[in-house]
């Protein structure tokens, strides 16, 4: 009886240790906490080119994170990328003429969307569309334009 209790205790400790490790990995190591962020609403922005933007990338205003990219689709009607932004409900007063641009954190960092509030007295509602957008900077294109400009200038 005593022996069996000791064995069960050891197994109990083992299983508990496993779950503690899983909890540690979920909370401290993985991004589980981000799945449980509060209520959010959706804004839509069309970009000509999103570069390397990915779903779940951050959305910032003045450098502060206010939401994340929910989904990225291709819009056949306008031949542009349709990006859905999930914005925290705490930040629900963006003017209608807010603009969105795709930026890169650092020189080779990940890409994110920065919103720049305008001056319109009316606010964007859930599902509202951001009209003013700026595409991602594509390095090859810039270098290409630079070289082309240089070549035509020398003629």
């Amino acid at each position: 009886m005593n022996n069996s209790r000791g064995l069960e205790l050891a197994v109990g400790i083992f299983v508990a240790l496993g779950f503690v490790a899983l909890l540690f990995l979920s909370i401290k190591v993985s991004n589980l906490a981000e799945y449980q962020e509060g209520e959010s609403y959706t804004l839509v922005a069309n970009f000509r080119n999103i570069g390397g933007l990915r779903a779940r990338a951050p959305v910032t205003v003045a450098g502060v994170r206010v939401g994340r990219i929910a989904a990225i689709d291709f819009d056949m009607a306008t031949y542009s990328a349709r990006v859905k932004l999930a914005i925290d409900s705490d930040y629900d007063k963006f003017p209608l003429d807010t603009s969105a641009s795709i930026r890169t954190s650092g020189l080779i960092g990940e890409q994110y969307v920065e919103l720049e509030p305008g001056g319109d007295p009316d606010y964007l509602a859930d599902g509202g569309e951001i009209e003013l957008t700026q595409s991602a900077l594509v390095m090859e294109r810039i270098i290409g334009q630079f070289l082309y400009g240089k070549a035509s200038g020398e003629k």
Binding site: F14, V15, L17, G18, F19, A21, L22, F24, L25, V29
Partner: peptide
């Protein structure tokens, strides 16, 4: 359980 402990 062992794999999770290993990773942690």
């Amino acid at each position: 359980l062992l794999a999770v402990v290993f990773s942690a």
